[in-house]
């Protein structure tokens, strides 16, 4: 056991694929299962996605504890008393984190300890993933998730702006204006992108959750008919493009050409998300294919 109530790092943590999604927990952390999940008859039901994850062995007891909120130390002790290996426990927690089922309550004064442990273990070559964030897709939750996901980009813009000032590219007030303008445009465009997805999906009376893990951000919802998926996949990037290009045009008319260029670049990011390689573009392509298949089946039946 390490001092200050930090559980000893186990080399077994990295063994299974799900265990690598397990974030750092300290003894005093309180863990809870998200309200979007229900454990019934050894099956963990994701009530939003209508998914059924089968729970094996003592996993049921551990998840039952999480349903009622449990201190991390107590969970570890319970796992040990049932002879559940550390690897299996980390794998379970990692899986729950990956699907956004895990919530953590940590007091403010314990944060410096946790950060210290993360930094120390990083020097030993162990990297902890961040805790996922999954909530009902309200505007406030979407704003929080968007801010969390885009924090690395916003910080990077700040650092590069500082470097640009040191390099002497432009006066300080110009660099501050461009940096803040780009950050705001980027954040707002991703936010309205998600909000538009939510609005389109919400018209189908579908329950929606927002899921954020690190820089990954997306909406969790049950599968819809292809035509609604098509509309949703197009609406988000379209609104993001309109907002960023609108701000870009406004900046250009006020002779802020560099800010305008940054905004048009952000616009192209949203356009790029419609490429069939990933994200909304992949969803769009898949939905179009399904719609064509459905139409082909329907026309075959009429013949």
């Amino acid at each position: 056991m390490w001092p200050n109530g930090v559980l000893k790092l186990s080399a077994a943590k990295a063994d299974t694929s799900a265990a690598r999604y397990c974030p750092l927990f300290i003894e005093s952390d309180v863990l809870k299962l998200s309200s979007a999940f229900v454990l019934r008859d050894n099956i963990l039901h994701d009530t939003i996605l209508k998914a059924r994850h089968v729970v094996h062995g003592h996993g049921t007891i551990l998840i039952l504890q999480l349903c009622h909120s449990v201190n991390y130390r107590q969970l570890v002790d319970m796992a040990a008393s049932y002879k559940v290996s550390e690897t299996d426990m980390y794998a379970l927690l990692g899986f729950l984190n990956r699907i956004g089922a895990l919530q953590r309550i940590r007091t403010f004064r314990k944060w410096p300890l946790a950060v210290g442990v993360i930094v120390r273990h990083l020097q030993l070559g162990t990297h902890y993933p961040l805790l996922s964030f999954r909530r009902q897709a309200t505007p406030r939750a979407i704003a929080l998730a968007t801010l969390r996901a885009t924090t690395p980009v916003l910080l990077a813009i700040g650092v590069v702006a500082a470097m640009g000032w040191v390099a002497g590219f432009a006066p300080l007030h110009t660099i501050v204006l461009i940096a803040l303008g780009s950050q705001l445009t980027f954040l707002l465009s991703i936010y309205v992108h998600e909000i538009m997805h939510t609005i389109v999906l919400g018209q189908q009376q579908t329950p929606i959750n927002i899921l954020q893990i690190g820089m990954r951000l997306g909406l969790i919802h049950p599968a819809l008919a292809p035509r609604y998926e098509i509309v949703s996949a197009i609406a988000g990037p379209l609104v993001g493009m309109l907002l960023s290009s609108g701000i870009g045009i406004w900046a250009w008319t006020y002779h802020l050409e560099l800010l305008g260029c940054c905004d048009f670049l952000i616009c192209s990011l949203h356009l790029g998300s419609l490429l069939p390689l990933y994200g909304d573009g992949a969803s769009l392509t898949k939905a179009i294919r399904e719609r064509k298949k459905h139409e082909t089946c329907t026309s075959d039946r009429t013949y």
Binding site: H56, D88, A91, L92, R98, L269, Y278
Partner: peptide, 29 residues
């Protein structure tokens, strides 16, 4: 995903669609 205490529902889709634009933005910066 392998976890001995729980088996993932294979049909469940937890993909996060906005990863691409954010990563591309970071790479550009």
């Amino acid at each position: 995903m392998q976890a001995n205490l729980i088996s993932a529902d294979r049909l469940a889709d937890y993909s996060t669609k906005e990863f691409g634009p954010i990563v591309v933005a970071l790479a550009f910066v």
